[in-house]
Every structure is written in C-alpha cells, then in structure tokens.
Amino acid sequence: MDTEALRWFQMVADGATVTEVAELEMKSQPSVSRALARLDDEVGAPLFRRSGRLLALTHAGAAFHRHLGGALHRLDDGLAAVQQIADPETGTVTLAFQPSLGTWLIPDLIGSFRSTHPRVRFDLRSKADEHVPAVGPRSAVDLELSTLRVDDADRAWRPLVREPIRLLLPSGHRLADRRSATLAEVADDPFVSLRETSVLRTQLDRICAREGVLLDIAFVADDLPTLRGYVASGLGTAIIPARWDAGAIEPSSPRVHYLELDDPEAYRNVGLSWFRPRRLLPAAELFRAHILARTESGGLPHPVAIP
C-alpha cells in the first residue's frame, strides 16, 4: 500500500478535510481524493462516507483506523532505526525521569553526553506518577531514571548513586544547631510532604510505620522547590533528598537547615532502567553506555556534606 495514502487516510479520519490535507501536504485536492479512492480498492471496502461537507468513517473505515495508528508508528520506528544505523549521531533518545532528578542528575548526564555527541536529540518526559514504570512493552520511552526499582524480569535496573534523605528545618527551629535528629524528634511539628504519587512520600510513610511515628501532615507540595519554600516560610519541617555538588542544584539558604536523618533507611537509590525485550536504537544505546560509564568512573555529582 501507498504509505502516503495511509497517512492521508489517518489525517482525514482524525478530522481533517481533504482540502486541509492537500494544503498541508502541498498536493492537489484531486490527487488526495484519488489516493483515498485507491485505498478503498486495496482494502476491499469503502472507508469513508460523505456527511455534509465532511467525510465520516464507515464501519470498515473505523476498524481499519483502529489498527493503522500502531502500524504507522512501527513503520516510523523502523525508518528511524535505519536512519540511526546510518548515522547514530542524529538519533533521538526518549528519556523519562523522576522530577526530583531534573535539577541535578539529568542536566549532568545530558550535558556530559552532548559534549561528545552534540547532534543527538532528547525527548524528556517528567513522570507524573513516580510509582508507575515508564518503560514497558507499549511505551515509547527508551530509558528511565528514577528511585523506583521494579522487580520485573523484563525491566533491567542498574543502580547509579545512593542519595541521602535529610531533615529540612526552618530557620530558628529548636533543633537547628544539631547535626542530626530522628523523625520522632519532629513528630509534634507540622510536617510538609510531597503527594502520594511520590516515591519519597512512600518512603516517609515506611519510616514512620517502622519507628511508630505519627506525623501531622499539614501541607502537601507538588515538587521539591515548593516543599523547600514551605519549610523556609516556617510552615513546617520535611524530609528531602540531599543537596548536590556540580552546581549544588538544591540551593542552600539561611532560611532552612539540613540535618542528617538518624535512620538506617534514610537514603534512596537512583537507578537506570530499560525494557529488556526492546532493542534500543543506536543513539539510546550510546546514552545508556555513557550513563553506566560515568557511574563506574565516579563522574556523577556527590552529596554536599553537612557542615
């Protein structure tokens, strides 16, 4: 079948008029209409019926449309694969990541990679629900960076760095001159937490359950900068991943204090995952190798020590 005609069929099925398709594709309207008519003959049934000035899908057309999108997507993947084999330096890497990693790890990895592969492009996707794996059989994501480790034979996971979890206190807090404290010592304070879609919130709940601590969740933040802002304004205390070097992207402020959290599980492992049955395209394979090599060489950022 003529793949150009298939794409035109999909555009019309999705609501475009034949005139709009012709203008967008810089073709004559009759040539688009003839291509759609030939497609009817090849499929063996009318795919459209006229409804006023528009074309509406027939039952056969609707059935064909349900399967065509996936077929064209696989075709485009195949064309991209050929292009990347011909020139891996022009590929695109689709990378999903946990939002809290977007301020320090993602810029470090992409910046260091693009210093030697400047033409590789990135499709960056911040995860809304951190508990749902982004890589899988029906996902277009190549690689995922997160603190969620999924025990699944089809999903590979490689640890990259251990990230300490610390207490975050507002300026003037009674424990501000301490180097460390337990969660129980701030149990009577109003507490600021991320939403339940956050892996950090799950870890907070797990520590509380193990230590028998009941916290007063007074405020819920959508992200770490907002959480830090709430604490800096004196609205409560919180737990937060460590500040980092290489630009220390989690900023220090005289309005907050970081304390070590006295708990054996006061850390989270940041890892790289991918879907084993899916063969990565060359650009994504290059980036995966870069991440693992940078990890093995000790090139990733490190936590800022508490003074």
Score class of each variant (00 low, 15 high):
Ala81Lys: 00
Asp87Gly: 04
Thr103Glu: 15
Trp104Cys: 11
Pro88Leu: 06
Gly102Glu: 10
Thr103Gln: 13
Leu79Val: 15
Leu105Lys: 08
Thr90Pro: 01
Gly111Thr: 07
Trp104Gly: 12
Gln83Tyr: 05
Leu109Met: 14
Gly111Ser: 09
Ile85Pro: 02
Phe97Ile: 09
Leu105Ala: 07
Arg114His: 06
Gly91Cys: 07
Pro88His: 09
Ala96Arg: 04
Thr94Pro: 00
Pro99Lys: 08
Thr103Phe: 10
Leu109Pro: 11
Thr90Glu: 00
Gln98Val: 10
Ala96Val: 03
Val93Pro: 04
Trp104Ile: 14
Ile106Thr: 11
Ile106Asp: 07
Ala81His: 00
Gly111Ile: 02
Trp104Pro: 04
Phe97Gln: 05
Ala96Gly: 06
Gln83Arg: 15
Ser115Glu: 15
Leu95Gly: 08
Ile110Lys: 01
Thr94His: 14
Gln84Pro: 02
Asp77Asn: 14
Trp104Lys: 10
Leu95Arg: 12
Ile110Pro: 01
Glu89Arg: 07
Asp87Phe: 04
Leu105Thr: 08
Asp76Met: 05
Thr92Ala: 01
Thr92Phe: 00
Ala80Lys: 08
Leu79Lys: 12
Phe113Trp: 02
Pro88Lys: 07
Ser112Asn: 14
Gln83Gly: 14
Val82Phe: 03
Leu79Glu: 13
Pro88Asp: 08
Gly91Glu: 01
Ala96Tyr: 06
Asp76Glu: 13
Ala96Cys: 06
Ser100Arg: 05
Leu109Cys: 05
Gly78His: 14
Ser100Leu: 06
Val93Cys: 01
Asp77Lys: 13
Ala86Tyr: 04
Gln98Glu: 15
Thr92His: 00
Pro88Ser: 09
Leu95Cys: 13
Phe97Met: 12
Phe113Cys: 01
Pro107Glu: 08
Val82His: 09
Leu109Phe: 11
Asp87Arg: 11
Gly102Ile: 12
Phe97Ala: 13
Gln83Val: 06
Asp87Ser: 12
Leu101Met: 07
Leu101Thr: 12
Gln84Cys: 02
Gly111Cys: 05
Leu105Met: 14
Ser100Trp: 05
Pro107Thr: 12
Phe97Asp: 01
Arg114Ala: 04
Leu95Ser: 06
Gly78Ala: 11
Ile106Trp: 07
Thr103Leu: 14
Phe113Glu: 02
Gln98Met: 14
Thr94Ser: 13
Val82Met: 04
Phe97Glu: 02
Ala81Phe: 00
Phe97Arg: 07
Asp76Phe: 02
Gln98Phe: 03
Phe113Met: 00
Pro107Phe: 14
Ile110Thr: 06
Asp77Leu: 15
Pro88Phe: 05
Arg114Pro: 01
Phe97Val: 10
Ser115Gly: 14
Ala86Leu: 10
Gly91Phe: 08
Gln83Glu: 15
Leu109Val: 13
Pro99Ile: 12
Phe97Cys: 04
Ser112Glu: 12
Gln83Asn: 12
Val93Lys: 04
Ile85Asn: 02
Pro99Met: 08
Leu109Gly: 07
Leu101Ala: 14
Asp76Ser: 11
Gln83Phe: 05
Gly78Tyr: 08
Asp76Cys: 02
Ala86Glu: 05
Ala96Glu: 03
Ala80Ser: 08
Pro99Phe: 10
Gly102Thr: 10
Pro99Val: 10
Asp77His: 12
Ala80Asn: 04
Gly102Leu: 10
Ala80Glu: 06
Gly111Asn: 03
Ser115Phe: 12
Asp77Ala: 14
Ile110Tyr: 02
Asp87His: 10
Gly91Pro: 03
Ala96Phe: 05
Glu89Met: 06
